[in-house]
Structures are given as C-alpha cells and as structure tokens.
Write a protein that binds this DNA or RNA. Sequence first.
DNA 1: TTGAAAGCGCTAACAG
DNA 2: CTGTTAGCGCTTTCAA
Lengths: 333, 333
Amino acid sequence: MNDVARLAGVSQTTVSFVLNDVEGANIPPETKDRVLAAVKELDYRPNALARGLRSSQTHTIGFVTDRIAITPYAVRTLEGAQDLAWANGYLLLLVNTGGDQRLKQIAVDMMLERQVDGIIYATMYHRPVKPPANMLEVPAVLINCYTDDHSIASVVPDEVLGGRTAVETLLQKGHRRIGFALDSNPVPAAVGRLVGYKQALAASNIPFDPNLVQTAESIASGGYQATMALMSLPDPPTAIFCYNDRMALGAYNALRDLNLAIPDDIAVIGFDNQELIAADIAPPLTTMALPHYEMGQWGVQYLLQLIENPEQTQQNPPIQHILPCPLIERASV
Amino acid sequence: MNDVARLAGVSQTTVSFVLNDVEGANIPPETKDRVLAAVKELDYRPNALARGLRSSQTHTIGFVTDRIAITPYAVRTLEGAQDLAWANGYLLLLVNTGGDQRLKQIAVDMMLERQVDGIIYATMYHRPVKPPANMLEVPAVLINCYTDDHSIASVVPDEVLGGRTAVETLLQKGHRRIGFALDSNPVPAAVGRLVGYKQALAASNIPFDPNLVQTAESIASGGYQATMALMSLPDPPTAIFCYNDRMALGAYNALRDLNLAIPDDIAVIGFDNQELIAADIAPPLTTMALPHYEMGQWGVQYLLQLIENPEQTQQNPPIQHILPCPLIERASV
DNA sequence: TTGAAAGCGCTAACAG
DNA sequence: CTGTTAGCGCTTTCAA
C-alpha cells in the first residue's frame, strides 16, 4: 500500500480511502484515478488479514455440516449458501465434521480463531441438533435442523405441507385408497409427512386406515417391502406415496415384479426429487422437491442480516423459517 | 494474550512461546502450566488473523471448483480434500464459480487476498482447463483436470485402465461380442475408456467392430437409444459396457422394453458408481468407481507437501498423478 | 529462562 | 482534501 501511495504521489491513507470508497473523504476524481492507476500498475492486492485484524470483519462465514455427501442432492444446500455468500462478497470456510460432537466443537473454534463473521450449521437430514456452545459467540443460523428450545434462528422444509401436497396430488387424480411407504424412524420428516398425509385424507373425508401406512427402512429395499405389504392387502391401494425417492425406486422394482404398470395400474409419488433417480427411471417419477438450495440461500441471507444489522434483525424468540417443498410433476401419477 | 500473560505473571512473549511450543525457548514446565492454566481460565483463543499477518501462514487452502453439485457423486472430491486438510489442521475456503472464467479469476483473487497457503482447482468432469493465471502465485494443484501443457501438478482418474478393466470383466464371463454405449462428446473420459475398450479386446484377440460402439448423449435417454441401436444389429452383443451409470439406467429401461433379462440374457456394466442409481436398481449395477474421494485426498496431500516443502516436492515437469478406478461388483454381469 | 520492542499491512481518528 | 499516527494481536530478534 505504501508502494502504491508512493507511486501515486499521495499518502497511504489516501490510498486506503479510495480503495474503500470512504464517505467522508471527498477525494477528487483526479487523485482517485492516479491511485487506481498505481494499483493496477503495481498489481496491488489488499491483504485481507491486515484489514480484518484492523476492522474485525473478515467477510468470511463458517459453514459447518455433519455430512455433505451422503444425500448427494443435499449438497445443493452448500451451493445455495455459497452462491448467496459470493453475491455479497463473502467466502465460505467449510468444515465437514462427520457427526462427532467434539470435532464440531473444534471446528467452530478453528473458525472463531479465523474470525469468521458468522456461522452456518447445516445437517443433511432434517433433525434436532445440539450445536456446540461456542458457536453462539458470533451470529449463527441453523439449516435443515433446529434446537429443541428453538433458541437459534433456523430454516427447515415444510414436511407437513409437503406430505399433504403429495397426497392431494394423488387425490386429485381420483385415488381414494392411498398407501404410504414410510420411514420406520420417527424423524421429523417422517412425522411431518405422516401428519400431512392424514390432513389431506381428512380434508377429503377419507377415513384413515392404519393398514395403508407401512413402515420400512428408507432405502430401495425398504420401499420394495412396504410396497409388497401394501399390495398384498385384501383391498390394496391404487396409489402409493413414498417417503423418499429411494423407497420409490424400490416400489418401482416391486410393482414391476407384480406386473403392475405405473401409472396406469398404480400411481407412485416420491419425495426428495433426487434428479438422478427421479428423472431417469421409467416412467419418470413425480415427486416433492426439498428446498435445499433455497434453504442454503435463506440461511446465508439471514445470517448476513444478523451480521450487518444485529439489533434490527434478531427476533425474540429467534425466527424459525419454514420453506415449502414444491411438487415436481413427471409421469408416475 | 496480554491478559493471559498478566494472569500467569509472565510476559506476552512467554505466552506466545508456550502456545507455539517454540524450540529454542526452554520454558520450565512449571511456567508452562501456569500459562496454560491462564489460557483456560480466560478462555483465550488466539487470533489467526494476527498470527497469519505476522507469520504469513494461514493454514487455509482455497478450493475452487466449477460445479459441486451436478454430478452428486463428485462432491466426494470435496469431502476427501476437506478430510485431509482437516487432519493436518487446515481449513478449506470454498468457491464454486459455475464455469465463468472471469469469476474464477476473481475467486482466486479473493482467496489470495485472504492469504491462502495454496489453491486446489477441481472440476466435476475430467477435462482440460485453463486456470486463472493468478492462481500460480501460491502452490496449486489440479484435481480431475489438467492444463494442456501439463504445467501444473494434477491428479486424474485412469480412464483407459478403467475402460479396460470393465471390458475385461465382461470378457472373463465369456462374452465375446461386447457393445459400448459411449458418450458422443470426445471428452477425456470417453476417449480414454474407448482406448481401454479396444485394448481389452485386442488382448483377447477379438477384432474391433465399429458397429459395436454406439455413441449418444451421456444420460439415460442416450443409453436407451444406444442400447436399442446395439440390439437391433444383425449380430447383437451379449454384453454392454455403458459409458456411465446414467446411460446404464437407460440401457436397463431399453432392455426391459425388449424383454431381455439382466444379466441372464445380456450383461451390463456401468461407470461412475453413482450409488443412488447403481446400488438400488434391479438388478444392482456392476460398475467402475471414479476415485473422487481419493483424488481429493491426494490433491490436498500433495499441495500440503508443496506448501511445506516447496523445493523438495516440486518436480520438473510437474507431477501428473493417475488414480485407478476400482471395479464395483454387483449383479448385472 | 524471560522480556522489550519492532514490525506484519491495514483502518480510522485527528490535525492540518 | 490529505497526511500523521496509533494501534489491531501476534511472532520473533535481540538483549538481559
């Protein structure tokens, strides 16, 4: 910076002023140009460490996650976060802790040492979490998860509405007996989607038949089993709502073994919109999309507000934002 | 740090010495303990910016990528990189530029401003690249890509050996007429796998029949078309090697329409090991895995060597590392 | 064995 | 409008 100042024939302060477009200092365009020319001439690049040290603002935000890869589609959370951060001149410092609580603690410490302006904590599955306490030393928001006491701002998908929309889609096609191949783990997604399933039924005055919800592991083989169980009912369903696309794939396999055509003999709707599966199988799967990208965006967006405008933004109790799951219509319904 | 020094009754220098385990300074254990106690007492956390400013080492590495999400499985590159960085006390600064050359330039600049110790440039598809010039101001390595002049260290998958292994697997099962549903784009993966295909055939003294390689778009519908073309040959193949798992999925769809059973009537082998597809379809797909995770690891590993040991590590010409693609045996062959 | 002191490159009062 | 100056929190030389 001194070199630039010297070359431009001004003081280092002036350089700083033009580089930061400081309000007060009314630098004449002529001087500004001279400085900028010197910057280009010398290929000068400001040192963000020094700047951060002085201004205690690094324009960097920490992104802590349990697993980024398991649900490939969920990586879009990271993408949404990164895109929005980037658009605001922020960079993401990434740590993937793999679920170990102590590692998370350390990860946050490393970020704090690097003076991140805020921290995002994202999970791959929608679930309650206990984030490391030190995380709250800076503004923080949770993505796809929440604390039981809702003490931290968070954004999650609307599982209930998603489940309801899926079932309503089936209802609109005239189906009255709708099976549900559900995850046997009572995770928020499973609980919420079941509530949505019941709501949709109730709204159409269809009594709830517990036989129509079959739980299994939320993978292809589980979808296969649940579908087989459903179809061997004395009065089998004419449509199946699958907890996720992997189970839907299993349902496809089962239905094929049963010689049933989709959607003519039976309709199938999934959840997750894992494009690689959903778009490519035959017939293409109608499914509900999880708003991963949007959650990533919203999380960073809100975090940035928290960072730049703490008192105005922070609500009490902290905001718990819910994003809808859009219906992706393809050909299985 | 001054507070810690005061509380421990030593100078700030001493605190720095014990925190950094400095060789020269022989601090008696007694003093050391006192300092450490004070650190804990005050919940002191060093400021990495100040440290970096002084020592010009941030223990942070920049990770630039074109797309992290398109090929979900490729996100494992990021995971491998992050895991290895983490194991060495480094954090990753992430930017996903989406293919815009100017953005890449800026991304690298932002990283350089933040004084990253090195930069990784990773692509989602194996291909030649022209990385921004400023990237070379710090140690750098390329993952899943390379420059035409091989002027930067890089790591890529062994496409030729992968293709060869896939075909040899088919050969070993007794197949002699092996179709190849190939990407119509002559990308390195397509070119390499075709070379491997030919090598395997030649090694078994099977003449190359150009009719047996059908090119199409490397998605499910392309796989469908290529398979149909292959099967309508006067002398159709008994096995199909698909350029990737998406095409294999299309092949499955086609074969089903043709009422051909896999693997009894015809064998199918894929490439990529996209678990979501490969493991869940019926029958589970035998395929070649791309070493994404390993490339991520190797890239960071090598970069760290470059950073910590520049002259010893840097080879001339820069190392071009090739990692094998392991065969994942399932049930389609 | 420990401490004083000089910066690393920058921002931002404060003065002129 | 521009320059002087005092740090931000740390590492590290040099001296004691």
